[in-house]
Design a protein around this nucleic acid. Structure first.
Lengths: 339, 339
DNA sequence: CTTGGCACTCTCAGTATGAGAGTGCCAAAC
DNA sequence: GTTTGGCACTCTCATACTGAGAGTGCCAAG
């Protein structure tokens, strides 16, 4: 394995770009003509041979063009793709749409997913910010019927949980208000753990306090709620059409919203945009896919993530640029709430 | 077009069942052997010819077996499929799962969608109950920062809307509480229309009142929020695999959650379970699919629906039975809230 | 009206064939 | 020693052909 020359790296870059565009194995002649290289086809061939023996390219069969391997994509992402940055105009367009939307965490997350999916033709996954350590910010009780109330718990990160609560004895809104006031005085700022070991009050308040503990319990075990968009875009990719068996399990994961199977959670511990290519993915079913993602709003303990997912043959530059911009935009919007 | 004899109807029923099971055109011999009919293959053939000339069956090509037409399925659903009712045991299992779940409208709707999709292998769509006429049940304000509050509006049907509200001047929780009390006194029970023509209060309350109107406005224009489950099940159906072009638009509609394209809204005006078969569907893209659905909780003005969707070759009996049972179960659960 | 028989039709899977794209390698040129 | 043109070779893909098989349609006899 020799040092990789500039020309060789350039050819790898061109092969990646061409293959990403066309989804067809790319040959020496195509590259030469399309990019007007001065070297001859034979030279390019011998460079390609070298790239193949170094593991950056593969052959579907003896005499077809070359396809980038996972390592080839990796190398492209690391050093060949160059700096990625969105045009100022495009940034402005995106930003504008966020200001148009209803000011609400979930709306922003959903909008981000929709816009990402649409502009990249990939599956986009965005989670609203979420804390590992659930803390109560406020409790509200709304009377529905004599013996039924709606319990609303607002968490620190402005997430809203709700649950119907059957009452043991009739209570009207004013009784609920006063119970709510007591509960707020006692529980605001408390975590699930603290509430659990808290000795509950008597009567009405006690019952509701148990409901709150239960609600937080359920919430802490729940899979991260995520907005997933753009499945139909991926179904139209040639990869899916030709190799359905490789992708049906991916679709199942998406359908089941198994976010932490789709997006390797370990990767989110790095700050900044991570790219997971093909077999780098820990989940078997995902090894024909690549993932571009980043955590955002990493203020201690409260964070979500932004990511896209598609066949390994994806436009890494465009994807990285957009994922990065959306995450910084969400960061900024979050800052207005938590800052 | 002659009167349809019993035998002829019986043969149509068998063709439908066999085709639904096998997804393969069914021939006279298959039917005879599998169901041990006393008539000969030739007789069955001539009955099939009659059924075909009456429009109940088709031929993919000259010499293949028969396939039910939309009219054939329609006739099966109307009169041949017989009474459908779930086994008591299965009802109990389903009911049990609802009692296990968190007592919350959205949870129930989601659970219904998941269970329906899983047991039928179809796409299931369930909307939580929703009112055309949005009425405020309660308003709550939660302080997030000096100049930012979270506005929570609970609607009559126990739906919870939320929005971040920037404040013009700083306010702490107790100020927000008192503003909330005034707003509740003034707005509870009011509809969007009434709030809109209401002359708003001054200062803090006025600003929030405008936010409430905006929130209701957005909500009234929003597509019905629906739980959609089971896409991967449909992707494995042979119809999709062979005839991708016919179904890609359906997937797009599902992906975009265009509920009122998927489920013809006019049909929901009938009470009881409706079946829409193939070309009966008003939307072009859906004409290779069938829909089984029903509204529920039809207490005036507050209702949702339960439905499933799949290729026209679906198990109508099982689908109708389950959709009916889930809707009655949701009815019952809703009754505990609104009753 | 029903039935067995039979010719006919159409699909489907498997095989063959030729064109085309692209490689690998070699020997000559730079 | 790197680069290049030339050329044989390999493998796919599209097309055409073929025979087996399934099922029909029709007819004449029961």
């Amino acid at each position: 394995m020799e040092a990789v020359t500039d020309r060789r790296a350039g050819i790898l870059r061109l092969v990646v770009r061409e293959y990403v565009d066309t989804a067809t194995p790319v040959g020496s002649k195509t590259i030469r003509e399309k990019y007007e290289l001065s070297a001859s086809a034979a030279t390019i061939r011998s460079e390609m041979q070298a790239l193949e023996s170094d593991g950056f390219l593969t052959h579907p069969y003896t005499s077809a063009g070359r396809i980038p391997s996972d390592l080839g994509y990796r190398s492209y992402v690391e050093s060949l793709m160059g700096p990625v940055e969105l045009a100022a105009e495009e940034k402005a367009t995106i930003r504008h749409q966020f200001y148009q939307a209803a000011p609400e965490l979930d709306e922003w997350a959903k909008l981000a997913a929709v816009l990402l999916a649409r502009s990249l033709g990939l599956v986009a996954i965005v989670t609203p910010p979420r804390s590992d350590d659930l803390r109560v910010r406020r409790v509200e009780l709304v009377s529905l019927k004599d013996l039924l109330a709606l319990l609303i718990v607002v968490l620190r990160e402005a997430r809203v949980l709700k649950q119907l609560v059957p009452l043991e004895s009739p209570a009207d809104q004013s009784q609920l208000n006063s119970a709510g006031n007591h509960l707020n005085a006692r529980l605001v700022g408390k975590s699930l753990r603290e509430i659990r070991r808290h000795s509950p009050a008597e009567g009405l308040e006690g019952g509701i306090e148990r409901s709150i503990a239960q609600l937080l319990e359920i919430e802490s075990q729940r899979e991260m709620g995520a907005y997933i968009e753009g499945l139909s875009g991926v179904l139209e990719q040639p990869e899916f059409q030709q190799n359905r068996d490789d992708f049906i399990d991916v679709i199942r994961l998406i359908d089941a919203r198994s976010v932490d199977q789709l997006m390797p959670p370990a990767t989110l511990e790095n700050s900044g945009v991570s790219v997971v290519i093909g077999e780098e993915h820990p989940i078997r079913a995902m090894q024909h896919c690549s993932v571009v993602m980043t955590p955002y709003s990493a203020r201690s303990g409260i964070s979500g993530f932004v990511g896209v997912l598609g066949p390994t043959r994806l436009q890494y530059g465009r994807a990285v640029a957009r994922v990065r911009y959306f995450s910084s935009l969400l960061d900024e919007l979050m800052l207005e709430i938590y800052g």
